[in-house]
Design a protein around this nucleic acid. Sequence first.
DNA 1: GCGGATCAC
DNA 2: TATGGTGATCCGC
Length: 384
Amino acid sequence: ARADPTAAQAAAASAPGSSKQWQNYETVFTNAKAGMAGVNKELVKQVVYEMSKDSPHFKNEQRKQQQTDQRTQKMLARSKQLSAHELEGHTRQMDKKLAALKATQDLTRTWIHCDMDAFYAAVEELHDPSLKSKPMAVGGIGMICTANYEARKYGVRAAMPGFIGRRLCPQLLFAKPDFSKYTKAAEGVRAVLRLYDPEFECASLDEAYLDVTDYCQAHNMTGAEVAQALRSQVHAATQLTCSCGVAANRLLAKICSDINKPNGQAVLPSEPGAIRKFMEELPVRKVPMIGRVTEGMLRQLGVTKCADLLASRGLLGALYSDIATDHFMAVALGIGRTTHGEPAREGEAGRKGKSVERTFAAISSPAEQDAKCAELAEKLAADL
DNA sequence: GCGGATCAC
DNA sequence: TATGGTGATCCGC
């Protein structure tokens, strides 16, 4: 590997005086992600744009973007029609909502959100330690599932097409996803988590929520100490590292687990003042369920930090649904769930749907399209 | 009620 | 050359 990934890339980049259209090209790949602090974002944007701009995929992205632009414009127009009187009314409504929410706040529990670091890639490195020092991605030429930290230095990351990753980092190695390996590793991790909260909840293969209130009490330990012990024990048992967030509820713990990634932890004290201060400065995009689109719409309304959610509560109340504003206000106060969900009904019991989809090259003949549908239906029937 | 959009992993 | 798959929920018509 070269000493300075971005310098090597810059030398290889081809853009002799071309019009710099890529500068206006927003891509998910330049979002902040652990291990990507030193990445030359402009360069990544340029490479992604150059490799994408003539593709059908790009056209489709543009179409979708236009759609959300329209939606945003509609909302913006409505916001401008609001009278001061209407705004005041909505503000009072939101104040009621806030008061009700505050009454439900519970700061007596200690939650840990545990998030494995570059999980699939870390498991692959376990099976082949020589990969550790090399940039490597799990996935294929079509799509990267996750990249190790060596690869992230080049801007290579999850959800990026493999051929773009290879352009950003020519020596990038690919490992074929092997979910039986990851499932097995996850079981090793879970065996440890169970010791700290027998009712812990898996959010995915590599994420879990633990209520460690009882454990803290029984062992006379702080949440931070438990997280430290848990991480050591996970590493001892599996040779894998994870990051933890420690806070009074699941929402805050989840946000915190991302702060000191990889192999770190962050603690938010369960004090009203500390929580208020933490939320005030937090960019809304860090909040679970505020994704790229919602972030964009909120930005148009002048809302970028969680403090803005409170300040603009009247406006939000006028423009968004009850469900959405409930979430916004809860987030603004740092209020999240403090209980486990339904007793984990194993397997398929809670399932509400089942589907199958494939990406394939364009086909235009009705006969071929029909055959494709039949193929998918057969697959779905077999799965069912 | 439905299809499409959004979000998460 | 080439841009994933599954499931849940919400929005807008």
